[in-house]
Design a protein around this nucleic acid. Structure first.
Lengths: 344, 344
DNA sequence: TTGTAGGCGTTATCAC
DNA sequence: GTGATAACGCCTACAA
């Protein structure tokens, strides 16, 4: 079926357009557009007339056409390493909450911890003409960085307080947090401290945490035994493996700092199964304050990160740039806390 | 600065357009468009010429303009009750994985368990001209349902195998799963079984689970003591509260079925703290197989749901409809498993 | 296989 | 305060 008006239109889908609303209200399309986007600039009478025409026709504003014409977009893109990992969930919620307040939409994709995939996703988001980007990872391909630079859209990185940001950063220092925890463990009297993280390849968060551990050990005048440093995949089972492996290869190990995921919880469970007393035989510390760490027995010493706040501030920062309320890139350090519990 | 070609254009933003690529390659815009969208329909020579022109200019395809012009969209919208809840994470990952394979984008928003907010989000997504919708909730406002119907886009609901879907459903039956677990507990010899869920208001999942429990109890010829049925908020602490409250009000209670969130884990921890042996003093069962339930002591009996698969199938179903590979709404029951462990 | 013409639905701009 | 007109960047349809 063709349109009712006299143009030999081509495709099927009808769909009410502004034109239809305008006709029904007996005004021009521009008046409808204004009544919708900037009600203040239209007379009381018009506003009401347009409003009821909109309701009668069931008109739904076409943001695609709007974006194309106005050359601005109300969509923000977010790329996380994984959607499964609930650690990101808090941050995503923070971002989503702020965007919702300003009527922006959120497009999400996961890079599967792959730089190449992130590169591709950046391209896809730019093709969607997102108004800005939030990236969790702080390592990127040269090409991705270049695309973003050319696109001239604001970007916030939030996985690590990197010192060479693409644009703005809202995060905490993985290096400092890790160093602080290692020092904390030493102060508690632990002599031989193991360190377990996720793979450090292409992952600035993990590598910074390891650097922090090493820096603390060196500052304490302790040798850094390579057998004490492990890289593991994520998950409870991996944490269990790690603690067993460490105790096997370095029997005098008396504490392990798990700087990733829920590894520490897996380790606590495994120690319990094997009858290794925590913290007497071995102290266990974690990174990131998942609710659970407070509830297991023994409760686990960890680092509390302002995940939700990082999301909020990232989004706020982005919207400030998008809306022109600010025009300089910033670096926000939201810090962390050491939470001492029963496991150390 | 105005454009280089002779039209008194208005806005600032430069940005390479197809026209620029076409000029550089010495071909028409349509050839560029075809080379990009359907490389097969263009000669080898052209393809390469266009390809290098694209690279030289750093051109990024404008999907907004593409969608507007072609009247199709490659964005799918997803609305979940909450982004924080890691239960949805698996499903989101499944959806994302499938969409990525077909070069679709995912727009996500959370309704905060509010029907009114969901209604608003549906409108916002329709305004973005999403090609399809995935809704976790199976209750909607009349208005939202009406908007979706008018938009004529495919929808998949996946939080419950509802019998009155808007369009397609890919899920499991909360009613059957809950009934099965309750029956399972009775078969194990438990006499007085308590039931705890999240608020059932506007939440078909929770209310169906409660219906399943009641149906099982009645089928077993047992009276349903209202003091045995609780509604709780989510979180570990809420589970702890619930078990204490149940034992307080009905001392003979010998099992509790927690049909929501991580409530059961909170209860297990609380029992441990109070010295109530699980499963001897009280049996505890959960809904949804979070990794953790297998690792706590005692490990917790639960229902395993195909969360990831639900995501995948939801997205596949949607894409089939969007691409025209299928044109009828379907109902897919992905089932569940009872996982018997130490806590019962 | 390639090109030309016109429109997708909206907003910026300028005239009234 | 309101309206006419010309883009926004691309694709469908049809012609060559």
């Amino acid at each position: 079926m063709a349109r009712s008006d006299a143009n030999g239109s081509r495709r099927g889908a009808p769909g009410t357009r502004m034109r239809d609303v305008a006709r029904k209200a007996g005004v021009s399309v521009m008046t409808v557009s204004r009544a919708l986007n900037d009600p203040e600039r239209v007379s009381e009478k018009m506003r009401r007339r347009v409003q009821s025409a909109v309701e009668e026709t069931g008109y739904v504003h076409n943001r695609l056409a709007r974006s194309l014409s106005s050359q601005r977009s109300d969509v923000v893109g977010l790329i996380v390493p994984s959607l499964r990992n609930s650690l990101f969930a808090e941050t995503i919620q923070g971002i989503s909450d702020v965007l919702a307040e300003e009527d922006f939409q959120l497009m999400i994709a996961d890079s599967g911890h792959s730089l190449a995939d992130e590169d591709e996703l950046v391209g896809a988001f730019l093709a969607q003409r997102v108004a800005g980007l939030v990236l969790h990872n702080t390592s990127h391909t040269r090409h991705a960085a270049e695309m973003i630079r050319k696109a001239k859209i604001p970007v916030v990185e939030n996985g690590n307080l990197t010192d060479k940001p693409l644009d703005s950063v809202v995060s905490y220092s993985n290096f400092e947090a890790s160093r602080a925890m290692t020092t904390h463990l030493a102060r508690l009297g632990y002599k031989t401290i193991g360190f377990v993280s996720l793979s450090v390849e292409d992952n600035e968060r993990a590598s910074e945490r390891r650097r922090g551990y090493v820096a603390a050990m060196e500052a304490l005048g302790r040798s850094v035994d390579p057998r004490l440093i492990l890289e593991q995949s994520s998950g409870l089972a991996a944490g269990a493996d790690a603690v067993v492996q460490l105790v096997g290869s370095v029997p005098e190990v008396d504490a392990v700092f798990f700087a990733g995921d829920v590894l520490a919880i897996g380790a606590v469970f495994e120690c319990h199964r094997r009858g290794w007393s925590v913290p007497k035989r071995i102290g266990i510390a974690s990174f990131d304050d998942v609710d659970l760490l407070r509830h297991v027995d023994p409760s686990v010493t960890t680092i509390r990160l302002p995940r939700y706040e990082i999301g909020r501030r990232s989004a706020e920062c982005l919207l400030d740039r998008i809306s022109g309320r600010s025009d300089k890139s910033i670096s926000v350090n939201l810090g962390f806390d050491i939470v001492q519990r029963e496991s150390t």
